[in-house]
């Protein structure tokens, strides 16, 4: 049923999910806002967002599908606080919904959370709905 949603409709529903999950105001939920730094998401909030997205869009999100959490625990993927080229490729492969333009120039592990923006979530949901259609 949700496969026919326009991008604006997806964005609107994602905004509602983030407002409810994070207790933020609607004007804070800009497309470039990062979930952690700008909207204050903590680790349990990421699971809350996943559960709410599943319910809102009637989709199933597997572990690590939206927020990959095992790539950075591989020692081959992180050296001296930087994501290695191999790690970067894995991240890009598992997160086609994220924008890596800035991150590729400064691939610090500490900057990985900045990959998760409102736009990232909207892209993910759109891809998911299009795949299911």
């Amino acid at each position: 049923m949700a496969a026919t949603l326009s991008r604006e409709e997806v964005l609107g529903r994602v905004e509602t999910v983030l407002i409810d999950a994070l207790g933020v105001e609607s004007d804070e939920v800009t497309q470039d806002a990062t979930l952690q730094a700008d909207l204050g998401a903590e680790s349990i909030d990421f699971l809350d967002i996943v559960f709410r997205l599943e319910k809102t869009f009637d989709i199933k999100i597997s572990k690590g599908e939206l927020f990959p959490d095992d790539i950075l625990s591989d020692p081959d993927n992180v050296v001296a606080g930087l994501v290695t080229p191999k790690g970067l490729e894995q991240l890009k492969s598992s997160m086609p919904h994220a924008n890596f333009d800035d991150f590729e120039n400064d691939p610090k592990v500490a900057k990985v959370p900045d990959l998760f923006t409102v736009q990232t979530i909207v892209n993910y949901v759109e891809n998911k709905l299009n795949t299911a259609a």
Binding site: F51, E54, K63
Partner: peptide, 10 residues
């Protein structure tokens, strides 16, 4: 129960 998996439940 609204949602449940091996990590958490809502």
């Amino acid at each position: 129960i609204e949602s449940i998996d091996d990590r958490a439940a809502a």
